[in-house]
Amino acid sequence: MNDNFLNSANAPYVAELFYKYSQDPNSVDSSWGSFFNSLNENDLSVLGDFRGPEWKKRPSNIIDEISFDKAIIPVPNIKVDSFRTSTLDSIRTLRLIRAYHINGHLTANLDPLNLSKKEYHPELDYKSYGLTDNDLDKEIFIDGSFGLESAPLNEIIKILIETYSSSIGVEFLYIQSPDQKQWIQERIEEVRNKTIFTHEGKKAIYNRLVESELFEQYLNKKFLGTKRYGIEGGESMIPGIEQIVKQACLAKVENIFIGTAHRGRLTLLSTVLGMPYKSILSKFQGYQNDPNEVMGSGD
């Protein structure tokens, strides 16, 4: 028999039971009162989340309308202790997920040469929440996180690492707007924070990087010692900005204003904005092909 009794049908029941307990401790059975009383502040916070966010509470009155046995009818002969164990497993796992939302970027793989030793962050260790190695294969209810109602703990940890601690770190909970935070979270979790490029897409990015590098090398040799604000080390900016421009065009954006540093601006002008090489090189030779720049371009 499946020991994971907490699911999308039962979670609202537990949430409402906890809500009633928080309003009046005597309104629930003493065994549940003891259970809720044993939880710490973080556990209670996560348990409260089962009822949904403040702006979209689940419209449910399970306790008042149906009995306990009917609320958990998908699993017959349920033992209350097992149900509580499943609830605790979910609470602990949701706390782990929340910790990755906050601090997952601290363990992101941003050092491909492994020059620095990674620090241990206990808040990202599942054992810090009372979970053990024996729980790794256990199916745990996670209330729709990552589009999953439930999943084995080891799979949940794998998803968390791929999404928040891989080669791209994400730090977004400091943002004040709930809509903006939700927008970012949905987009990184939907694809596990990894863009899947087509073969042609990879070739296009490679060609753009090569084009940028060759242009920089040419300027360095042809105009040695001339102040040109090279892009060395920032080449990935070029395909990134190009993609932003393309997506803006698809979204029917009519005007784009780019405020950029001097560094890499010549490569940006030539590769992304399509400024002819002839126009760029003529300026190195002192020619002015724009009447508006007779008094200087401002650079």
Rank of each mutant, 00 (worst) to 15 (best):
125 D>A: 14
217 Q>C: 04
256 I>T: 12
38 S>I: 08
146 F>I: 03
40 N>S: 08
109 N>V: 00
82 S>H: 06
207 N>C: 09
99 A>Y: 00
148 L>M: 15
95 R>D: 05
200 E>M: 08
5 F>A: 08
182 Q>T: 10
268 L>Q: 04
60 S>T: 07
37 N>I: 00
160 L>R: 03
280 I>L: 15
64 D>E: 15
223 F>D: 00
94 L>H: 07
224 L>K: 06
254 E>M: 13
74 P>R: 05
206 Y>I: 11
276 P>E: 04
158 K>Q: 09
174 Y>S: 12
63 I>S: 00
22 S>Y: 01
235 E>F: 14
180 Q>M: 13
17 L>Q: 03
133 D>A: 09
215 F>H: 06
249 C>I: 08
57 K>A: 07
113 L>T: 13
232 E>C: 05
109 N>E: 12
281 L>D: 02
95 R>Q: 14
89 D>R: 07
138 K>Y: 05
61 N>H: 12
247 Q>W: 02
20 K>I: 04
295 M>I: 09
214 L>C: 11
258 I>R: 11
75 V>A: 04
87 T>Q: 01
69 D>N: 11
164 Y>E: 03
103 N>M: 12
166 S>H: 07
46 V>Q: 02
267 T>V: 10
258 I>T: 15
154 N>S: 13
14 V>N: 00
248 A>W: 14
81 D>E: 14
210 V>P: 01
295 M>F: 15
67 S>E: 04
16 E>Q: 15
59 P>M: 06
290 D>K: 07
17 L>D: 00
243 Q>A: 15
287 Y>S: 14
164 Y>A: 01
26 N>Q: 12
130 G>S: 11
291 P>I: 06
20 K>H: 13
241 I>C: 06
271 T>D: 05
136 L>M: 14
23 Q>R: 11
78 I>N: 05
185 Q>K: 14
114 N>D: 14
247 Q>E: 10
221 K>Y: 11
231 I>G: 02
239 P>C: 01
170 V>T: 13
89 D>A: 12
216 E>A: 09
138 K>H: 03
31 S>R: 10
180 Q>H: 12
236 S>I: 08
79 K>V: 09
65 E>V: 14
18 F>A: 02
169 G>I: 05
123 E>I: 14
63 I>Y: 00
183 W>L: 13
196 I>C: 08
46 V>T: 11
28 V>Y: 04
91 I>C: 06
12 P>E: 02
